[in-house]
Amino acid sequence: MQRVNMIMAESPGLITICLLGYLLSAECTVFLDHENANKILNRPKRYNSGKLEEFVQGNLERECMEEKCSFEEAREVFENTERTTEFWKQYVDGDQCESNPCLNGGSCKDDINSYECWCPFGFEGKNCELDVTCNIKNGRCEQFCKNSADNKVVCSCTEGYRLAENQKSCEPAVPFPCGRVSVSQTSKLTRAETVFPDVDYVNSTEAETILDNITQSTQSFNDFTRVVGGEDAKPGQFPWQVVLNGKVDAFCGGSIVNEKWIVTAAHCVETGVKITVVAGEHNIEETEHTEQKRNVIRIIPHHNYNAAINKYNHDIALLELDEPLVLNSYVTPICIADKEYTNIFLKFGSGYVSGWGRVFHKGRSALVLQYLRVPLVDRATCLRSTKFTIYNNMFCAGFHEGGRDSCQGDSGGPHVTEVEGTSFLTGIISWGEECAMKGKYGIYTKVSRYVNWIKEKTKLT
């Protein structure tokens, strides 16, 4: 034993070699072989497995989906700052455009905790909710729209109204504003409101030439003092309507412009014939205590009207009353817009006519005020429907199939267009061939041609 100890002390290297040989010859039971080890760690190889990531292109799944990435790591994937920024906006807080917040056709661009709407022409605001041009839906104005110097929408209202708090709607500024039905039992019968379409306001006024200088022999019209197929109006439903009495009662109609003036057809009036105007009328054979009678003290036909040349060209006249009318729910003026808007309103496509005229061709006159909704007829169809001249200051309205029309005794009465609950004068009943005849239409004086003249002559002093 002493000898062994001496050998170990003198030859430590020998001992180490012996131990190493023993270990190498022993069977290893701690580690699995290569094949079995792979069965336990069965993990798919990654895209760049075996390579240094710093030297390969980034992978979106590896960089940002398996674990949260930084902007720089995302930049490695896209290799483009702009594309990385677009991805980053949604990656950080989701897609803010998912709810489609942009209105009126706006395009949404996502941002971090926010979004941006790219608005089409005519709109602005956070969600493109603000109209900035009158060309689109009248700028959301209830009545009139004008573009300011910086191309912003400025709404306005006709006389007797003021802008509401929203700067879009119009509200009454006087007790009985024009064009409004205020009798409670008839307010439910107000005709369907007309909503502004998209309009090209630059070209809204037709490029028409008034044929002022045409000389033409007097034409022989049949029954051209021209509501057939209409309905009984309720008291106060058309408070701007008046009836004219002269040699015979209810020979023509008219509309209240203001307390002192009536507008009617020029062919209705004769110099030297006494005319009485009755406002607030409903049943011409009954006294309903809503009527107001006034005498006409002055007749002003349009300066281009000449019955000797043509009885229905420039067929418009103004009547001055001896005493002002007292405005109330049964006696209310009709609204008159400017030339541009009167023309736009007419193009809405349908209007209402009213009167006490004959209820059928050569038949009896109506006792109760009649009204009828009539569609506008395109000019080409209008011209083809008659052998008589249709001037540019006239328009056609009615039904091709016949059966409904204005008729004798309705002449001078109103053709009105309702705009968001307020009625505007767009025409004056003038003439036609018979009444409600198939293929024939009622012919009306186009008020847009005469609004400046009306307003100039009827100013209240």
Rank of each mutant, 00 (worst) to 15 (best):
E340P: 08
S114M: 04
I297M: 07
Q241D: 03
V199C: 05
D33C: 03
C108I: 01
E124P: 02
P175M: 10
C128V: 00
D150I: 09
V228P: 06
E323W: 06
E259R: 06
Q90W: 06
P333E: 02
V257S: 00
E270L: 13
E323K: 14
I309Q: 13
V257F: 02
A233E: 05
A233R: 05
S385T: 13
C268W: 01
S217I: 12
T158D: 03
I443Y: 06
N203T: 13
D378C: 03
P197Y: 12
V353C: 03
R140M: 07
R358S: 14
G236N: 05
G442V: 12
Q57E: 06
P375A: 14
N48A: 15
L23Q: 03
N138H: 03
L189V: 11
P44H: 06
R83K: 09
E286C: 05
E82L: 05
K362M: 09
G409N: 13
N393C: 03
I454L: 09
I334R: 01
S148E: 09
S329P: 14
L425S: 00
C396D: 00
G236Q: 04
W261V: 02
A380W: 14
E27D: 12
N135E: 15
D95L: 05
S411H: 13
A317E: 00
E165K: 13
E73I: 07
G349D: 14
S156I: 04
K293P: 04
L211V: 12
S187R: 12
H303L: 05
T209F: 08
L189I: 14
G253L: 08
V278Q: 04
F238Y: 03
E124C: 03
C18Q: 04
S114V: 05
K457I: 14
Y201W: 10
V227A: 12
D212E: 12
Q167R: 07
V195T: 07
C102E: 00
M437N: 06
G122L: 03
Y444K: 00
G229V: 08
T215H: 07
Y330F: 14
T271R: 12
V377D: 00
I336V: 12
I17H: 03
D110Q: 07
Y341M: 10
A366N: 14
E193T: 08
L372H: 15
Q219C: 05
F395H: 01
W118V: 15
L425W: 00
H415E: 00
A37Q: 05
Y352P: 02
P333F: 00
K146Q: 13
S11Y: 07
Y371L: 11
R226H: 14
W453A: 00
G229R: 13
I112A: 08
Y391N: 14
K39W: 13
Y22G: 05
Q90V: 11
H302A: 03
W356T: 05
G106L: 00
A207P: 11
G253N: 02
L425H: 02
Q216K: 06
E54G: 15
D232P: 12
A317K: 00
G125L: 00
E67M: 04
E456G: 09
I262S: 00
K247G: 08
G402V: 15
E10P: 15
L425T: 01
I334C: 02
C252P: 00
A26T: 12
C396S: 01
D322W: 02
I299Y: 09
E142R: 04
